[in-house]
Design a binder for these strands. Structure first.
Lengths: 154, 154
DNA sequence: GGAAGCGAGTTGAGAGTTCAACTATTTCCC
DNA sequence: GGGAAATAGTTGAACTCTCAACTCGCTTCC
């Protein structure tokens, strides 16, 4: 039996447009950050979250949640960025299982310089090509998608 | 001098909404395909393009272009899918540098079964949460982004 | 108070992607 | 015709991500 709710022609086109734009856009964002700053976008996001935290410090699990990383990914990422000198880890005194991650001054400076090219790219490839109405629509669409993926579990 | 055109608060929120939705959505799509069919989404796309080609066959470079893969990625991917028996490669008679990739019957059957769960997920997480107007807006937004990334070269 | 279970974080293996280098062929053009 | 440059495709190394296993500390509850 086939009760799959396939996409109709219209939906098909929308879906392909979306996929195409998504791939091209994020490939570009990724490459810009990678070539100009040697940083994957996921790492950039982690640094941003840290930079906005009080004392530029967060528990690993909070950092994972706020940067939408798995714990595993974050562990690997922080390990690598600690080697690079951008992040420092320290033990949590009240919970001996815990670890703090702190953005170093060097990491902050690095993030600051990386952010410039990144923002330029985002502006040029996203905001500059969308009307204000489209920007508003994009936010509402994004929020709707996010809501469906966070609220009701799986 | 700082002539970076930073994002204002409004843009900042839009950008974060977009990033968040993007990550959650595609992580989900990726995981659904991976766990239910053992297939990365990029591989799925490659198989789809092949399945729509005449004789289910395409030159490697055409396949790369249509599936938005780099040549390298495609080479690796096809190598792996050839091992799995879903794709077959053959030499091009008119251009000895060339290779054809052909979707096998087994690959077609596999794709067909994988597509069901995938479509369900796309529908549940995208189309079901958007109004018709939002779907239309999403397509226009996507097309605008795509255009800026394909037309004007870099 | 001690065992069972939960939570925080790490680790290693396996897989995909990218980049640069490489081979082989074809095209360009003098 | 022949050499330079472009094109097709592959390969291997480096890196990131995921998943499952694992360690260690906290909590619960009898």
């Amino acid at each position: 039996m086939d009760d799959t709710r396939w996409l109709d022609a219209e939906e098909q086109r929308t879906w392909r447009s979306f996929i195409t734009a998504h791939r091209l856009f994020f490939d570009r964002i990724e490459r810009q950050l990678q070539t100009d700053s040697g940083l994957p976008h996921a790492y950039f996001e982690i640094l941003v979250r840290l930079s906005e935290a009080p004392d530029r410090t967060l528990r690993m699990s909070e950092l994972a949640a706020s940067s939408l990383s798995s714990r595993s990914r974050l562990s690997h990422a922080v390990a690598r960025m600690e080697e690079a000198g951008w992040v420092r880890r320290s033990a949590c005194p009240t919970d001996k299982r815990g670890q703090f991650a702190e953005l170093t001054d060097e990491g902050f400076a690095y993030l600051d310089s990386a952010a410039r090219g990144h923002v330029e790219e985002v502006r040029a490839r996203l905001f500059d090509v969308l009307t204000p109405e489209q920007q508003k629509a994009l936010r509402e669409i994004s929020d709707a998608i996010t809501e469906s993926l966070t609220d009701e579990g799986r």
